[in-house]
Nucleic acid binder design. Structure first.
Lengths: 152, 152
DNA sequence: TAAAAATAGTTTGACTATCGAAGTAAATAA
DNA sequence: TTATTTACTTCGATAGTCAAACTATTTTTA
């Protein structure tokens, strides 16, 4: 590895760390400045995991965001109270609670998607289509590395 | 934008979100499997912010990780008790608390740096030096977008 | 098919991280 | 010298998390 490459690696490494260490906090701060001040970034991730179309059960959502079912219960309690989420008992299996977004929940979901898109757009700023393919490979590399770690 | 490019954008967007939503959790899980089970990912970020060489005050570290000075006090209390961090009163200004890593703190700091490097290496896997430059630009785009948001 | 086991979610109690407000000690300005 | 500001700490309140025990329902099994 030449000196320039090493320098590149160091810079990429340190900016990657910078992004990871700040992105959550920035998302939280953006929420607090928005119309949805009553949501934390964790609430937002719950709403994101519930998502728009497929119905999910409480425990499925808990698994996605890595909290226990009991924590899920109290998280959902608050989101229901604030009017973002609906609880419905499943008809097929009456033990199961199906979660869905209310109108207000859908609005904030879409707004948050917009935030993510802005981030992705800025990520790819000024890239040719060949460049985009390279970046796509990189982010895919990273995601599959993390998935691999997750499975261990 | 052609259809392929749109598809690329969607995939990059969704993997980017996937990375952000999972990386903290994976770092936490990796810590729990390591020799340093008594550290949370937030403890690790505190240690990271204290860093190896330059002495930093308690309030500087608090600013870096976005917590209040009072939260910093109790975070440091625990890291001191567990033997990762040292408190020293500044001689120049005896109100100031300078923070430093102990031997054990330095070991875990280096281990965590290794974790980051592995991530960066996987991110760049199979890339030519031209590709690396492209990826470097992308991650730099993202970091400066976030920095811009942060300043607002 | 009746009883036992498993599953989905909730409640409870304990613990931890966080904050803001008030307090202390030291430095700086008036 | 006194008043103000600064750096940190203490205190009390609040929110998120978990594990264990519990309820209701479904599935298995004897």
């Amino acid at each position: 590895m030449g000196e320039t490459l090493i320098t590149n690696f160091e810079q990429i490494n340190s900016e990657l760390v910078g992004v990871f260490n700040n992105v959550m906090w920035i998302e939280e701060a953006a929420l607090k400045q928005s119309l949805f001040k009553d949501l934390s970034i964790k609430d937002m991730h719950t709403i994101e995991a519930i998502s728009m179309y497929e119905e999910k059960s409480a425990s499925e959502v808990a698994r996605i965001i890595h909290i226990t079912p009991s924590s899920m219960t109290s998280a959902i309690d608050k989101l229901v109270e604030k009017g973002y989420v609906e609880r419905r008992r499943s008809i097929q299996d009456r033990r199961v609670v199906k979660l869905g977004l209310t109108h207000k929940g859908r609005i904030v979901y879409r707004a948050h998607q917009g935030f993510h898109r802005d981030m992705a757009r800025n990520f790819l700023e000024g890239m040719s289509s060949e460049d985009v393919t390279v970046v796509q490979k990189a982010i895919h590399n990273l995601m599959s590395y993390l998935t691999r770690l997750l499975q261990k």
